[in-house]
Design a protein around this nucleic acid. Structure first.
Lengths: 192, 192
DNA sequence: GCAAAAACGGAACGTTGTTCCGTATCGTTT
DNA sequence: AAACGATACGGAACAACGTTCCGTTTTTGC
């Protein structure tokens, strides 16, 4: 793939420094103003021009991905570990989904942007899916093989649903996605 | 309330005609281009200037509400009827939610716009909630009273969750919110 | 008919994401 | 160390959007 070329550090020192500053600035702005903060705000925070942002990160999605890549990867890697350390596959699934929800809920607006069809976030959507759906599939398959859950719900659908449930969790203290996600996962379980 | 003043037909004949045209045009554009279609497109479709739209409907939300008001009201009114005609309260809840999902899913982008914090859709959000949460509460209470569902999930939360699950259902044939909503409602049911 | 009231159209504003290009800086080569 | 090409920079400029504003047109009541 082109991972290398995309992630490659710039040749020049100032460019490398700016890219770092940009990542830090973006992370800071995302925390205070949410993921949908204007690009100009991030540029200002980093003390950098607009052109610089777009050279390093061809689109907003790429910047968001770069900021959260480590956490998404960590979540993906936690899947197999949970499967190994949990009493049942369903418990592992439950814990892993909870990890995912915690991640989404603590990033203002990220869940919303994930499903947004505002073209330009496709890359972001795709990255999350590429990274997490395989893990979810593994957990789901394990639970299904153990006869713990109903079949018919795919990993993509589940991830998508959980992501959707997390939309708007910030900015509304009366809405707690964790409870609903809990109900959803409970609904997956077979009776008996 | 100010329902009367807001819904009052304009005094002048041309204004009344334009308001009608606008509603028809908006409905047509929403079907073809989705609820997020630019205001200018609706104005063009109605053969009307921008000012005219904003005089009749102070904000996009008001236009959307006006277009869907009847259907939302119909959904609200179906609640008590279903409760009377269904075998169990849980069945009534299930059918009513299904009605709501059908409504949302057939309006491109409506679910998305409902939760959008893009300020300006607050009115829309509020209208849906005002109209539907009481009905949902009634169904939920009935099911709880019959001991059919777990307590702890409020009507607001449930409506919000179901709405969220419907986001992005169009423009993605691989995502079927109905199945997930089914799982969610199943998760509400008490075992045994 | 005529004036006042009501409503109209669309230019203009503010905010966004993104592109473009003249200018500045860096790193290498003589 | 000077100079030159490659690299990167800043921010003006563009397009799309929601919304506001106001000079002009249409309707209505007399």
């Amino acid at each position: 793939m082109n991972d290398d070329s995309e992630r490659a550090a710039p040749r020049r020192k100032d460019a490398r420094r700016n890219k770092e500053n940009l990542l830090d600035a973006a992370a800071a702005v995302f925390v205070t103003k949410g993921v949908e903060a204007p690009v100009r705000d991030i540029a200002a925070e980093a003390g950098v021009g607009l052109g610089t942002i777009y050279r390093h990160f061809p689109t907003r999605s790429d910047l968001i991905i770069a900021v959260y890549r480590h956490q998404v990867d960590a979540c993906a890697e936690a899947g197999p570990a949970l499967l190994a350390s949990s009493a049942t596959a369903h418990a592992a699934l439950e814990r892993w989904i909870s990890l995912f929800v915690d991640f989404l809920v603590t990033k203002h607006g990220l869940a919303g942007v994930l499903q947004s069809d505002n073209s330009g976030f496709d890359t972001l959507h795709a990255y999350f899916l590429d990274r997490l759906v395989p893990v979810c599939t593994q957990l789901l398959d394990a639970a299904a093989a153990a006869g713990e859950i109903r079949s018919g719900v795919g990993a993509y659908e589940l991830m998508r649903g959980v992501g959707n449930l997390c939309i708007g969790a910030d900015s509304d203290p009366d809405y707690d996605p964790r409870r609903l996600v809990g109900v959803l996962i409970a609904g997956l379980r077979l009776r008996g």
